[in-house]
Every structure is written in structure tokens, then in C-alpha cells.
Design a protein around this nucleic acid. Structure first.
Lengths: 192, 192
DNA sequence: CGTATTTCTTAACTTAAGTGAACGAGTTGT
DNA sequence: ACAACTCGTTCACTTAAGTTAAGAAATACG
């Protein structure tokens, strides 16, 4: 389990054994059951998440309807907006599957960053990378039709379509479940 | 002009006079005419932009059609994807208005970050902030209809609607210019 | 100036997504 | 084993965006 985290970190910086044990001493690892809600709308939280195994989902409830805006799977992390700005959360986070993740809070971040300046560098690299990726994803979303977005997802994260219920996938694509069904039927028809 | 940049930086870290002159010695400032294309599709570039005054636009050309995905105005910065990954650019960047901006490259960043570690911290803070904002914007886009997105933009960046041609705004909202016209007419009708 | 070009709007028609309802398959709980 | 629920699909109908075309308004330019 720990190795998954250290393998990930090693993509950015190299760690000494001392640094590794400093991280382990923080006791970050959590195992969470499918369906567990990690964060609720209106709640204040200081927890950052990083998924080691499994899948978590971010969603809003708008006019009584769930609107899923993101899935985080292996090697993906999430700092909820409410953590950065210490405001009540606007959205929910729940586990799509049984999930193993790390839970950190900003205090730990500050502590680690002060002790080991290279973490500061890693955090910058990681944020910059995620920002670039996020902007790409946003651009792709804006410039595509729902059908194209579904086909893109089929290319880029085919496993997600298997792991996640259709109605959550639909709202992730910005459409209703019925439209996703229809759209898939349309694609099948075109192929034949 | 310099003060705009230093005021911005001072939101994150405080600078000594020595640090300020180190920045000024890099000769970052550029004045660019409306219509100038700063980056073309297919081109490799090492330039980061930060807008001090004016407005720049990022757009793709897909099937011969311009698809605008972002506008950057005062106090907003952009590191093109192709800079981070040293690949040919997938999009264009051009000036919507006469614009004053800073142009930096990663080497300067490395130089400054090594000399003044607090820049590293500022870069992390800035990236994290932009990432959080970007995710909020994406969520809002996904969870809204085109009409709602237009109304949101009217709230959040009213000046942009004045500064930018309608057809560019339309594609920024993910629709065709004709649909934007119609949608605006519809809103006016509702009000009365 | 006046002409050319770009930009915005309007209209008629097509296509696709939203809505409400119904149905069957699969799951949960008792 | 049965009832209750969730989930995905389908259908008929409504609404809004895409498409094509035309014309008005604003802008650029010789």
C-alpha cells in the first residue's frame, strides 16, 4: 500500500528512508467502504484526499438532482475547494467503490513542507501538471458535443465506463441518463 | 506598469528591492497590438504570458472553425500546454485588444526560483489557487445550460461581454453565434 | 466618403437533448 | 420468496441548439 504512494512521489522527487518514515508517521492511510460519504454539502473540512485504490466521486445536488462533475481513481488527488478557502463545501464526495486513500490536512502539509523543502517543489510541479491537465480537459469538453465527449471518454478512460453507474456517467458528460442511453444506441447503429 | 506586477506578487509574498530589480532585469514587459497572434497551432514555444492590461484569447481551429476556450484579462496568466511538455501547440493565442503583458520562459523561472526560494512558494500557491478556480469553473460549466452559463458570465465577468466579439463569446459558452443571439433575445423577452 | 468586410441578428428547418412515463432486470431487505 | 427499490432502456412529446441562408449594422480601408 505504502509503495503505491512512494512510487507516485518518486515521479517528482526522490525520498530518503528518513523522509519516507516521516511520511508514514503521519498515519495517512484510510480504508473506506463503497457508498461512504467523505464530505457533505455545507460541511467544513480540512481533508485532502489521494486515491491509492478505488474510486471517489464529486457531485453537487442542484434542485434535488445529483450532478456528478468528477471521478478520482488510482493516483489521483483532490483538495476540496472548501479546504483551501475554509468555507462550507458546495458539493459532496462519496466512494463509488471500496477505496483506499490517504487523508491529509494542510497542517501536515505545512509541517512536511517546512521540514523537507523538496516537498514544496513537488507540490508546485504537481499543481502545475494538474492545472495543465484540467485546462486540457475543460477545452475538450467545451469544444465537443455530448456524443463526442462520450467517445473521447471511451478512448481516454475506458475502465471508468465499466466502474461507474450510467446515470453518474451521464451527468459527468453533462447530459441526462436517458440521453446517454439514446446516444449509445445511436452510436451502435452507426457502426453497423 | 511594473507596479501592476508587483502589486499582484505582493498578494502572495513580499519582495525586497533587490528582488524587485532582479525581476526587472529580466526585461519581461511587452506591448502587443490588437490582432497579433502570440502562438500558432503546431508551433513550439517556451513563452509564459501574464496579462497586465488588455485581453488575450486562446482558441482552437477544429474543422476550419474557431473554438475559443479562454480569455485572459488583467492579472491573469497562462502557461501554454506546449511549454510544459515541449510539444507543438494544439491551439492559438491572440490579442483581443492592444495588450501589455509579461513574457517569461521556464529558464527564467528556474533561475529566479533557485535564487529566491520564496518564488517557489508563490508558484505553488498560485498554481493551487488557479487549479481550484479552474475546477470550480469547469463544474459550473458542466452543471449549467448554455442560457445559465451566459447569465453566470453576466454576473461574474460582465466587462468581458463588452470587450469581446459575440461570436467568440458564443464559442466560449460552447454554442454557435446564432444560438447566442437567440438566447439573448429569449432572456430579454422573459424579463418583460 | 463609399465600398468591402466583418459582425450580429432573424427566420425556417433539422437534429439532438430534456421531460415524463412506463417497463423489465437486477438488487436489497425482510 | 416476495415486496420495494434502483437502474438502465425505450417511447412520445417538448424544447433548445445546429444549420443554412439572408439581410441589417458596424467597422475597416482604399
Amino acid at each position: 500500500m505504502h509503495n503505491i504512494l512512494f512510487d507516485f512521489i518518486s515521479k517528482y522527487i526522490s525520498l530518503t528512508e528518513g523522509e519516507k518514515s516521516a511520511i508514514l508517521s503521519l498515519d495517512l492511510f484510510r480504508s473506506v467502504e463503497k457508498g461512504t460519504i467523505l464530505l457533505k454539502e455545507g460541511q467544513k473540512s480540512q481533508d485532502d484526499y489521494f486515491v491509492l485504490k478505488g474510486c471517489i466521486r464529486k457531485y453537487y445536488i442542484i434542485n434535488g438532482e445529483e450532478k456528478t462533475t468528477a471521478f478520482f481513481t488510482e493516483m489521483e488527488g483532490l483538495t476540496p475547494y472548501c479546504v483551501k478557502y475554509n468555507t462550507p463545501s458546495e458539493y459532496f464526495i462519496s466512494c463509488v467503490e471500496d477505496t483506499i486513500l490517504t487523508v491529509a490536512n494542510p497542517d501536515m502539509g505545512v509541517e512536511i513542507n517546512t521540514k523537507f523543502p523538496k516537498f514544496e517543489i513537488m507540490c508546485r510541479m504537481l499543481s502545475e501538471e494538474l492545472l495543465a491537465k484540467q485546462r486540457m480537459d475543460f477545452d475538450e469538453f467545451k469544444t465537443s458535443s455530448p456524443e463526442q465527449r462520450y467517445l473521447n471518454l471511451l478512448q481516454s478512460r475506458p475502465e471508468l465506463i465499466q466502474r461507474v453507474p450510467q446515470h453518474q456517467l451521464a451527468s459527468y458528460l453533462g447530459i441526462k441518463p436517458q440521453s446517454l442511453s439514446r446516444l449509445r444506441a445511436r452510436i451502435l447503429e452507426k457502426k453497423s
